[in-house]
Nucleic acid binder design. Structure first.
Length: 190
DNA sequence: TGGGCGATTCGCT
DNA sequence: GCGAATCGCCCAC
């Protein structure tokens, strides 16, 4: 078996709508722990649902920087959520990683989540950050350097698109992408 | 199986 | 002060 190719930050230097569906099937690891990305959402600077919509602030600053870097924010005061910045610097677009099929470091993820069910380890943006140990200390780090590793997908996965989840603005934009039929999604596509 | 709600921090109005 | 790119628990059906 050939070693899978590693994706570099250059991969993200394109439109967020190009990058997002191509991330489905890629493998994301933090310190060797993680799995296959099965669900993402695209956010754009002209999108009212995006954190970058109203311009740069202290929190969203990373989104206005170069592509291929990680933007971590706190959600509902409790959870962490992880994005990867896309497009040329300054366009403030990002892909939110929403669900992962756990494949590496299951014991570590179970311990962090306190759950026995593999299916529920990474089936949501807050869950996967907890399972993989992602916090605000990862904010602003490049995705193509340790502790992160991103491996290119093998083959052509069956990608579905649908409306995004948990937002109140621009709810009809079909900018949620997922692996069709995966058991590890945060919610099924219909 | 699905809807309602509380927890808890912080950016923005 | 409000409400959010969420989660997990509880309850009804």
């Amino acid at each position: 078996m050939p070693k899978p190719a590693r994706l570099t930050r250059r991969f993200f230097n394109r439109s967020v709508h190009q990058v997002a569906p191509e991330l489905i099937g890629a493998t994301l690891l933090v310190n060797g722990v993680g799995g296959v990305i099965v669900e993402v959402e695209a956010y754009h600077h002209t999108d009212p649902a995006s954190h970058s919509y109203r311009g740069p602030t202290e929190r969203n600053g990373v989104m206005f920087g170069p592509a291929g870097f990680v933007y971590v924010y706190r959600s509902y005061g409790i959870h962490w959520c992880v994005n990867v910045v896309c497009e040329p610097e300054g366009s403030a677009s990002a892909v939110l990683i929403r669900a992962i099929e756990p494949t590496e470091g299951l014991a570590a993820m179970r311990r962090r989540r306190g759950l026995p069910e593999v299916r529920d380890l990474c089936s949501g943006p807050g869950k996967l950050c907890q399972a993989m140990g992602i916090t605000d200390k990862h904010n602003g780090l490049p995705l193509d350097r340790p502790p992160f590793e991103l491996r290119a997908r093998v083959g052509e996965p069956d990608v579905v698109a649908g409306p995004r989840i948990g937002i109140t603005k621009a709810v009809d934009e079909p900018w949620r992408y997922g692996l069709r039929g995966s058991k590890f999604l945060s919610k099924p596509f219909r």
